[in-house]
Amino acid sequence: MNQTFKKETFRDDYTFSNSPEAVKRFPFPFHEDEYMYSVNIEPHVKTAVGSITEFTFDIDEHYVAECEDKAITLANDPQRYLCLPHMMDAQWDTLELMMESMSNDYPEQFNLTKEGDNWTWVNKPLGITTKFVFGDESSLPMEPLEYIGRQVQGDWVMLDQRDNNLFADGAIVTSQADWSLAIDVGMSWQEWHGPVPIANEIGVFDRALKYLLNLQLGSPVRRLNWTMTINPRLDTSPENYPIWGPDRLSVTPENVGDKVHLRVELQTLFRLPRSNGMLFGVRGYLISMNELVTNPLWAKRLHRVLKGLHPELAEYKGLSYKDITIDWLSKYDDGTSSE
């Protein structure tokens, strides 16, 4: 694969944009004209060439720029990486899974060589070569999850499984949709999902937990989730709310197409072998309304989904600019089928 990586920013001047190819492969999440929470989990199997699930971990045109943005966020706030001491096995499990997958799937970009426990990792796009001893923390410049998490797009949470429950006991989180790692680290499944409206009442989380406790090694799963973001900003954390929160008030009928972005999360879950823990990935994809309406069916469908969105969900997702967006999208909806 001959991937070129864009030079772009996710803050300040916000030069991020999607190429036509990136728009084409965007994971539009709505299968019908309305949306409600469900246990929409499916096997994380490889799909068509060029799709975002062609490989276990998707490396796309935004890879280098996203990793650079991640480094800025971590430099400003080192607490975006937190890990409890009993998760060291899970950290190595995660590093191994990512290095093996990426070097197998993108051999021109990434290379992993092993001589026993002496490993050499080469990341060409980021210009990294590291020799280290697998299982020996002192041989890496930082803990394994932070080391590899800086080199993979998205946020990565490691879950410990005990007491028939899952605990978010370690993570690297730099592009979250308004949740705080510093607050959530160590929390149980029920605790960190507590704030989500409606889904708790309809039993979605109880069923999903029961399913995930039996997640099998070698059979990862995935689901899509979504929200919306003003400006193509990755770091929409509670810690930095004063920086990005007020942007919600900047949306006008004239700038909806540029400012309002649909943000889709490809969430993946992997059983980890040595730790019997789990890796939970949240990989975000951003698309501006201008880019989205280049697909007429998406434009119609998003218009209808937003119009019918349950008020509690709109409130929880912080879509204070929903009505302006619906008005703007209405000109792309002639009422015909969105199938």
Partner: peptide, 13 residues
């Protein structure tokens, strides 16, 4: 055989 499954793991805490 199936991949390994652990229903009897040591509590890490």
């Amino acid at each position: 055989i199936t991949y390994p499954v652990n229903l009897f793991s040591i509590s890490k805490l």
